[in-house]
Amino acid sequence: MKSERVLLLPGWQNSGPDHWQSHWERLHGDERVEQHDWDWPKRGDWMARLDEALLQDDAPALLVAHSLGCQLVAAWAEHSQHTARVKGALLVAPPDTEHEAMPPQLHNWRPIRRPRLPFPSITVISSDDPYGAAERTLQMAQDWGSQVVMAGPRGHLNSASGLGDWPEGRQLLEDLARR
């Protein structure tokens, strides 16, 4: 993966220091795409920020999204003129932002964007994710044209899941890079 940039796309409220994305940033030098507002995320603002990050460098990028970052990738890919800069996306624990129990800060992420992604992707799904029923998340992944990896009962695949630096996830990213 030396020729590609790895862009980390955290979800709502960012990824804390014990999150696997933060481990990857420290261990592998992956680049976190910083958002202007992590607490009240606006879909259009986050999409514009992803475009800005991609345009900072001509190298192809691998997107590594967690939670709301997955919804960002789907919405961005539907509208951006720069999708050819992306070699692939690892989408981990996409939330069901259409669920009535979602906090009001996430209501502007409705409806979920579902067009087929214009680049290869892998979606990792936990069977007991509190932010998205496995059946709904599986349907999203199928709509996006993603390869699906079922991770078993691992919660939201975040720091509370005890993944550490999550070597299994890194292997999936390396597999995606080789495509």
Rank of each mutant, 00 (worst) to 15 (best):
W24D: 00
R85Q: 15
P17G: 05
D30H: 15
P95I: 12
W20T: 00
M150V: 13
A133Y: 05
I125T: 11
K2S: 13
E52R: 14
A48R: 14
S80L: 05
G69M: 01
L63H: 02
T123H: 10
V6P: 06
G145T: 07
R32D: 07
A53I: 15
Q147W: 09
P41K: 07
D175I: 08
N108T: 12
P103S: 13
L176Y: 01
L54I: 12
P41D: 03
G16A: 13
K42A: 08
D165E: 09
H99P: 04
G164K: 00
E135S: 15
Q142K: 12
G164V: 02
W109I: 09
L176V: 06
H19N: 02
Q142T: 14
A77C: 06
A48C: 07
G44W: 01
S3R: 10
W40R: 10
H23N: 09
M1L: 05
Q171P: 00
Q139R: 07
Q105Y: 00
E52D: 15
M1S: 12
D51G: 02
L138V: 13
P153Q: 12
T137W: 01
A48W: 00
W166M: 06
G145V: 05
E98D: 14
G152M: 11
G44M: 01
E52Y: 12
M47T: 04
D128M: 12
V33Q: 01
A93V: 06
E174C: 03
D45T: 09
L157H: 09
D58F: 09
E78F: 00
L173M: 08
R32Y: 06
Q139S: 11
H23G: 01
H28S: 12
Q35T: 09
P111H: 09
E25P: 03
M1N: 06
W24I: 01
E174P: 00
A133P: 03
L138S: 09
V149K: 11
Q81C: 02
G132Y: 14
Q139P: 00
A151Q: 12
V149H: 14
G88S: 07
L90A: 08
I122Q: 03
Q35H: 07
W24Y: 05
E98A: 10
Q56S: 15
R136N: 11
W40K: 08
L163Q: 02
W109D: 02
E174I: 05
M140F: 13
D51W: 10
D30K: 07
A53Y: 13
D128I: 14
L90C: 07
N14A: 13
L176T: 01
S3N: 10
R26Y: 03
H107T: 11
G29I: 05
S121D: 00
P118T: 05
D57F: 15
